[in-house]
Amino acid sequence: MIGVIDYGMGNLFSVLKALDRLDVEATVTDRKEVLERCDGLVLPGVGAFPDAMKALNETGLKELVQRKVEQGTPLLGICLGMQLLFDESDENTSTTGLGLLPGRIVRFEGENASGEMFKVPHMGWNHLDQRHPSSVLLNGIEDGYVYFVHSYYLTTEDDEVVIASADYETTVPAVVGKGHVFGTQFHPEKSGPTGMKILKNFCEYVTEQTERGV
């Protein structure tokens, strides 16, 4: 069972529906006793980083997510949910994240190196440039486009964490991961066949891990 964490931020319905289409057993819930029993967790999210961390702190879900991950439960963060996996974010004010992956979330400048303005948010379909095609999340993905909507992006010193990226005036980490913690900056549930395949890969990974008794 995959648990989609409901902490009051974002469109949980579309993630759940996408999992339904994949015939994956999933639930959207804020109940800790239910999430506790899940074999894999999805952290979705739309909105502001500080609000999201506040909600995770106040509900005690932050502690639950960190502990489950420590015990080996696979986790997939989507969009803001991906950003939350990292150390901290500059959004509005500097806010500490879940610290599961190394890096910092910063805002698009809106102006490139040659002084030209570009649009923020980064909104629309962009090509997925694979950096570590051997990652379980990219299994079977040859070439594809995915759907982004975000104004902040990841910067990290640890290149190993960035599994795939997109090019939008700068290099935008698109798929991240280390061990059993993964994230996508884009919305896989809204990214056509490529996005659905990435979700499927995560779910299959969860099943494998569960069967191995991790």
């Binding site: 319905f13 996408a18 339904d20 289409r21 919305h187 809204k190």
Partner: peptide, 8 residues
Amino acid sequence: VAATLAIP
């Protein structure tokens, strides 16, 4: 539509 479609 949301249950069927994987595009925005």
